[in-house]
Amino acid sequence: MCNCEECEQWMQPYMDRVLTDAERAEAETHLDECSYCRKRYRFEEHLRQFVRQAVVIEPMPIELKQKLSELRTPLL
């Protein structure tokens, strides 16, 4: 089983689902047994969602959409 330091190193790759099966299993075992890391893992999940929502921008301006359409090749 990995320790807290390794779990911290693996946290982002774990969330990105790029760990090997063996690493993933080790990380999950550690998270099951370690409330310190589990708390931080849950925070990281909340944080990703929060960042994604926080940076939502205004929709593309209609005028720009129109300009892009006008760039299309004219039909003969």
């Binding site: 708390k39 849950r42 925070f43 909340h46 944080l47 929060f50 960042v51 929502q53 926080a54 940076v55």
Partner: peptide, 19 residues
């Protein structure tokens, strides 16, 4: 503290500025 309360310490502006 719990994870929800901790993340609530951040504002939208914190994220936008940080990025």
């Amino acid at each position: 503290t719990d994870e929800d309360r901790v993340v609530q310490r951040l504002s939208q502006n914190d994220v936008v500025e940080a990025l």
